[in-house]
Structures are given as C-alpha cells and as structure tokens.
Simulated scan of single mutants.
Amino acid sequence: MLSEQTIQTLLQLAPKNEVWQTPIKGLFVHQCDKPQHFESYIQEPSVCIVLQGERQICLGDECTVFSQPHFMFCPVNMPVTMQVQHANAEKPYLSVSMKLDLEEVSRLLLRLPSHYPTATNDHTFNQWHLEQGLSEAFERLLNLLKTPNEIDFLAPLYQQEIYYRLLQGKAGEKLRALLSFGSHTQRIAQATQWIQNHFAEPLSVESLATQCGMSVSGFHHHFKKITHLSPLQYQKSLRLTEARKQLQAKPESIAAVAFAVGYESPSQFSREYNRYFGYSPRGELGGINLKNHLYIVDSF
C-alpha cells in the first residue's frame, strides 16, 4: 500500500470533487469529500488504485466494490457507472488511475521472458492484490508531482516499470491477451473501438464478426463474456452516453440529438433514454439535470 505521506500529498494537490488530469501523461487523481455518482462514462484501458475509501463499478447488472489494498485493471473500453458512497471531509475518497499506453506495453512485452503467472479468473473487472513492487513503482511516479521539473525525464521510466510489474504479476495475462494478435480479447477490443468510432451508424453484427475473423456465434459469446453486453447493447450505451453529453453541453432539441447519435425515431430515443438513465431527456436540456448525476469520459 502507498505511504500515508504520499496520500496526504495527493489530498493537498488534487482538487476536491473532480477528476484531476495531472501533469504526468495518462495519470488522473480523483478526490471527493461527498458521495458522487458518475453515470455512464467510458472506462478506457487503465489500471486504478483506490488509496482511501471505496468505489463501486457497475457494468450492466454486475457491480464490483474496489478498495485498498487492491487495484483494478480494465482491458477494453467499457461503458460503466461508478459510485462513491461513503466520503466526507474527515475521510475523503481518493484514487489514482493511469491509462495504458498499449504501444509502449507492446514494445516492453517483446523484451520479456515468455513464462508468466496464470490468471485465476475471467471477469472483465478484476480485483488484484496490490503487490509491493507495483505499489512502490506507483509511489515513485506519484512523488514526481512534487518535483514537476523531473516529470518529463523520469515519468516514462516509472510508467515502464509499472507496465513491467503488471506483466510479471497475475494481472499480466489479461494485459498480454489485449496485445496478442488474434486473441479473443484483442479482437473484441478491436470491435469495441470500431463501434465507438461508428456508434451513430447502423450496426451489422455479421459484418463486425467477419471483420474480426470470428463466427457470429463466437463473436457474440466472446463480446458478451468480455464486455458483459451484446454488441447492440454496447452501441446503445455509447449512443445514449453521447446524447446525454450533447444535451448537457447546450440547449438542443431532443429530436436533433436523437438523429445525431443514430436514432431514427425521437420517441424511441426518449423511451430508451428514460429506461437507461431513469429520467426523460427533457431534464437535460439547457444543463438541467433532474438527478444531478455527473458525466465524465476519462479514466479514474
């Protein structure tokens, strides 16, 4: 576990009740002193450590609570919800998240031996024990926030060590699967990226399966196994998340947003929006949010 001194430093540096994009590339710190609910954001491939308090991540109907001394590893882009339930001024919630530079991990992987530990489960969100080597590497990286002039030179070295520790640990199997050409994880990651880039277009599962070099049944099976959603459900979550972002950003007609994110029927859009978020899209117009939920698209 990271030292109390490092935790106190982060509590002083990080803004309260928001996600701080630090000067270190891909590194985010989230501190809050009150309960927060982040509705339907995209969790990118990343590793996250909860330093104080706990958070609940939900993917569809499956929810997992993360707390110290564990870390979370997410292998592919996921539309999830996150909730911090117990946080106050005396004991604020604090977590750190680092996006994975997959090109850098791939280069490192070529230099490592071929024998690795085997993972013990196959869930999308794994909760791994935070081993000492990984904890110390993160501590060195975070301490650079106190010496900004050293970040450019030392941060890439410490991040490379973090990748090394991940690959050598029990979480390494999932990370290697993401980078192994032809693996199920790599193919589904390719599919999720395609859907993200074309979410407003009609989705042909058959064409996407062919693009990934898989049968339709095999593609369905592995897509749902990795993301816990069908391809169409995944697309729907992206459409509704983007619609919510557009509605909150500026006053807009509901029909215009519905068409912009790929719906042919505004009434169908309104029904699915209500079912997904629990309230009508009309509540988002002009920045009015009936449930005061937060929207974010970044790792944390």
Rank of each mutant, 00 (worst) to 15 (best):
W128E: 11
H129L: 12
L130P: 06
L130E: 03
L130V: 09
Q132D: 11
G133R: 11
L134I: 00
L134Q: 01
S135D: 11
E136G: 00
A137R: 09
A137V: 06
A137N: 08
A137K: 07
A137W: 10
F138N: 00
F138W: 13
F138H: 06
R140D: 13
L142D: 00
L142I: 03
L142V: 04
N143T: 07
L144A: 00
L144Y: 02
L145K: 07
L145N: 06
L145R: 05
K146S: 14
K146T: 14
K146W: 03
K146Q: 14
T147N: 11
P148F: 05
N149Q: 14
E150M: 14
I151C: 04
D152T: 12
D152L: 15
F153M: 12
F153N: 11
A155D: 03
A155C: 06
P156N: 01
P156E: 05
Y158V: 04
Y158S: 04
Q159K: 13
Q159P: 03
Q160N: 13
Q160E: 15
Q160W: 08
E161I: 14
E161D: 11
I162R: 04
I162S: 01
I162T: 04
Y163H: 11
Y163N: 10
R165N: 11
R165G: 03
L166K: 05
L166P: 06
L167A: 07
L167V: 07
L167G: 04
Q168A: 14
Q168C: 15
G169D: 07
K170H: 12
K170F: 13
G172S: 08
G172C: 07
G172Q: 08
K174W: 14
L175E: 04
L175Y: 08
R176H: 02
